[in-house]
Design a binder for these strands. Structure first.
Length: 426
RNA sequence: GUGAGCGUAGCUCAGCGGGUAGAGCUCUGGAUUGUGGCUCCAGCGGCCGGGGGUUCAAAUCCCCUCGCUCACCCCA
């Protein structure tokens, strides 16, 4: 095991074809739904200047402080493997002057992210996200639309999940609120657990998440940020809720929901699922109206979310996963060298006609080929032997019910095409 | 970074009051030499994660190390 050349790095992994079946189902579904809402794909580099993330995400965040894959390149630039994509997408949005387009610019992305963390259930050092970013509006209906789209994705995949929302206010009212909160916590230190004493200083909003019983009384008395917002933010939040209500979307207000990145303002939301262990968030997002300016762009209002693909595929129902698995519709089996030559010819012809088929050069006897066809769950086997060569027609066997009949090459192609049209073949 | 648990066949695991390895599944061959699944039979396959120590003897006991897993912190 310790022989390192044949081992991947900790926190990374190989995704084998069987596991990828579920991933493809999720990705296809996401592309379809995102398109329904007008999101178009953008691909940005997975490596960017360290400064982009440090400023964008926030110097004091855990991500920037201790989780980035940062190194000097040969040109002595400090570069970083992206720990998330929003900063990159905003950078691309500014650099390509997409803000000059009118209307809301909707972008989506798919790809790997990197964070140097300790491996855990639902957490990897290289993990994958699908995300969306909508630029150019702070209309609360946009917040609601984005959230609706996120839920539609979960629903289409048959994933049971709960929506948590909160408003973290703007810089102004959040600063005011956290100052107030910190003051109260300082006066209650003796009634808090060790973790919360630390949080009271470093990340006071996190206190709301504490599971320790002794902290409960104090937490119950704390003012909630959603009720301490300035008029503008408060109005925005209640509008978002109204739009969600109008869309028939159920949500839970989570006073302690603060995303771990500095750029979030106002709407913050998360979709959580059971069966995921401690890392139960499969989707997280929020509004980040000031981020563009932080990295040197014009004022841009924006909101987005990211889905943890690794976690989403973990809770994907089995039947959805199976629907993404590849199964050959036709396995071509042959006996003897003349039949082998014929098999090659038929395979070529079928593929030219846009049909797929599978034949194996290592299988040996006809029995072995049949066994292999069964094992890979082929729907049909085309059998070519001396009899078939003499007749110039072939035996096709339907594995499901063991029925078999004779077909010419033309009939075979027609049969496969008809099945494809009926949607029996992916 | 901290804590706990676990590393034995390709996979899941048993063996751990020391005597140099076993099962199920998988794989290969056969019963069935032009027909899969089911059944039966046989076979392949292990420096027991690595290193050191104790001992006549270590998968088993001790130490170190690497890796994996879960949890804390935090996040997707």
């Amino acid at each position: 095991m310790a022989e390192s050349l044949i081992n991947n790095l900790p926190g990374t992994r190989d995704l084998l074809p069987e596991e990828l079946a579920g991933w493809h189902v999720v990705e296809d579904c996401a592309r379809r739904i995102f398109r329904q809402y007008g999101f178009l794909e953008i691909r940005t580099p997975i490596i960017e200047s360290t400064e982009l993330f440090a400023r964008g995400i926030g110097e004091d965040t855990d991500i920037v402080g201790k989780e980035m894959y940062t190194f000097q390149d040969r040109g002595d630039r400090s570069v970083t493997l992206r720990p998330e994509a929003t900063a990159s997408v905003v950078r691309a949005y500014i650099q390509n002057t997409l803000y000059r387009e009118s209307g809301i610019t909707k972008l989506c992305y798919f790809g790997p992210m990197f964070r140097y963390e300790k491996k855990q259930k639902g957490r990897w050092r290289q993990f994958y996200q699908i995300g969306v970013e909508a630029f150019g509006s702070d209309h609360p209906a946009l917040d609601a639309e984005i959230i609706e789209m996120a839920l539609r994705l979960m629903d289409s995949l048959g994933v049971q999940a709960k929506l948590l929302i909160n408003s973290v206010g703007c810089r102004k009212c959040r600063t005011e609120y956290t100052k107030q909160l910190r003051q109260i916590l300082q006066s209650e230190l003796e009634n808090l657990c060790d973790d919360c004493r630390r949080r009271a200083d470093t990340n006071c909003l996190r206190v709301f998440d504490c599971k320790i019983e002794r902290c409960r009384p104090v937490i119950g008395k704390l003012p909630v940020i959603a009720e301490s917002l300035c008029d503008e933010c408060s109005g925005h939040f209640s509008s978002v809720k109204t739009y969600l209500d109008g869309a028939g979307i159920a949500y839970e207000i989570a006073p302690g929901l603060v995303r771990g990145l500095d750029y979030y303002v106002r709407t913050a939301f998360e979709i959580v699922s059971g069966d995921l262990g401690a890392q139960n968030a499969i989707l997280g997002g929020g509004r980040y109206d000031g981020l563009s300016e932080v990295i040197g762009g014009p004022p841009v209002q924006a909101i987005g979310f990211a889905v943890g693909l690794d976690r989403l595929t973990m809770v994907l129902p089995e039947e959805k996963r199976e629907s993404g698995m590849w199964k050959p519709d036709l396995f071509i089996a042959y006996k003897g060298d003349a039949a082998f030559q014929k098999a090659l010819h038929i395979a070529r012809e079928l593929r030219r006609l846009q049909q797929s088929c599978y034949l194996d050069f290592s299988a040996g006897s006809l029995k072995r080929q049949m066994r292999l066809a069964n094992k890979i769950d082929a729907a049909h086997v085309l059998i070519i032997g001396d009899d078939e060569l003499a007749r110039d027609s072939y035996t096709i066997k339907k594995m499901e019910d063991s029925s078999q009949w004779e077909v010419t090459l033309e009939e075979l192609a027609q049969y496969l095409q008809a099945r494809g049209k009926q949607g029996k073949v992916r």
